[in-house]
Design a protein around this nucleic acid. Structure first.
Lengths: 253, 253
DNA sequence: GACATTAATGGTAAAAAGTACCATAATAAA
DNA sequence: TTTATTATGGTACTTTTTACCATTAATGTC
């Protein structure tokens, strides 16, 4: 961004005496929908159990207040992701801003929501300051919407804190809409520097929630990614159960 | 959104004594990219000339501070649109939130940007409180990017206030990406209750910045909109120069 | 009124993309 | 050695997109 330069003395005086408190200000938070895939290629989300009021003991997505003046919103989101999961340099993109005045009973809170896509082995989950617990939940669906579950517990979408149900729904919908023309899926790979076509296909299947035909998936992968140079063929194979699979590397741009 | 209910006395006490000022809060604004098409079907944007510091006398997109507690961000955007153009009930959708700490020299300002699409004849442009002037500018492109011009003046994209160049670019790009699968274009029609296929085609051409084949455009329009009931055939024609054109009505959902 | 001009409408045909499905290859497990 | 499994390399069919042509119904000009 270009830097702003004062040009006149009048302006310098104005800025010096500007009363920043003339408008009542809302609190601003960066909230993050952290998504990953487990070993069965099921979509998982990181939820924290709130340690304080409001919504004490409710499960919520992690988030934190923007420290105005010290950081940008993007940086606040990255900081929150780091404190909660100990990871850095992963897919983290702004999703939407939620500004309903009643969404938080304390005061007006404007939340800028982000989506993070993380390979599961990179996650090092910690409960942050304001959380008594933090866990991954499998996301499943039934007639009433999303169900979040793991070995210990199961919660339904309407049992989440604040309007986090709405935020999560938007994150998943957005991801599903973007997957055919954006490179998002690569960020969920175990290792985007060395992966097979089948691994990538399973990610697409999870996000689209339907099975795909491997030969056809392969064809479009070769056309849209390998032929265009977005992905390079490593000329190596990986042996597993059936015929060895060729390995590819995603090129970040 | 679901309403929050206090469940315990401890929680009630907490909320009563909650100190809302424990974090330094940013100002939050709703800024609007107001787009319309002129009589030559060229894309126009409403810019205001700033009447006060910072960026006094620079052209900018209209915006206003969120009155926390009184309104949602969506409402703040609608209010700003109303004060600036005297219109209501038009396409107004959240675009992106800009939160770089240096974007405003006064204090940390988080701006939630919106895109408004308006038929030109509905616009009743007024310079608001903080503007000395408000005008429509044609958006054109050259090697250095966007050029905004009207009868009186011409400015280049880097001459705009704040980071508004970036916001406008994102609004146009988003519009262009959405136009093939969202109904956005209908909101730029002179009258979405009575329009011809050619009128809609010209809007698509402007936004995509290339010419389209009318017979093919008609075919997909009939398949995607008329056959699905999103648009109904009024069984009337409008006589102009050539063969009379059939009139259609867009059904809001 | 005949004729050129204009723009809408109703087509066809080729090209591209998407989908279904088959055959074979290379490995591990039985 | 056989069977199961998974990757790879195809073909064929369907659908969608794109290019382009012909006709129709109005206006404007001579």
């Amino acid at each position: 961004m270009k830097a702003y330069k004062c040009t006149t003395q009048a302006e310098k005086d104005f800025l010096k005496t500007y009363d920043a408190s003339q408008f009542e200000r809302p609190s601003v938070t960066a909230d993050i929908v952290i998504l990953t895939l487990d070993s069965s290629d099921e979509l998982n989300i990181l939820l924290i159990k709130r340690g304080g009021f409001p919504y004490k003991d409710y499960w919520a997505i992690p988030g934190g207040f923007l420290e105005a003046g010290k950081e940008s919103i993007d940086e606040a989101a990255a900081r929150e992701l780091r404190t909660e999961t100990n990871i850095d340099n992963v897919y983290l993109k702004q999703l939407y801003t939620f500004g309903n005045p009643n969404r938080d009973p304390r005061t007006t809170v404007v939340s800028v929501a982000y989506t993070a896509l993380v390979p599961k082995h990179k996650l090092d989950i910690k409960a942050g300051d304001d959380a008594s617990d933090a866990k991954l939940f499998r996301i499943k669906y039934d007639v009433n919407g999303m169900i979040f579950s793991n070995e210990e517990e199961t919660i339904t979408e309407d049992e989440l804190a604040f309007d986090h149900e709405e935020i999560i729904k938007m994150a998943i919908t957005r991801l599903r809409n973007r997957i055919d023309y954006e490179d998002d899926a690569f960020n969920l790979l175990r290792d985007k520097n060395e992966f097979t076509i089948s691994e990538l296909k399973r990610i697409h299947e999870t996000i689209k929630n339907r099975t795909l035909d491997l030969p056809n998936f392969r064809k479009t992968f070769l056309r849209d990614y390998v032929a265009t140079g977005k992905v390079i063929d490593l000329n190596k194979t990986m042996v597993a159960k059936g015929k060895p699979a060729r390995l590819y590397k995603y090129i970040e741009r």
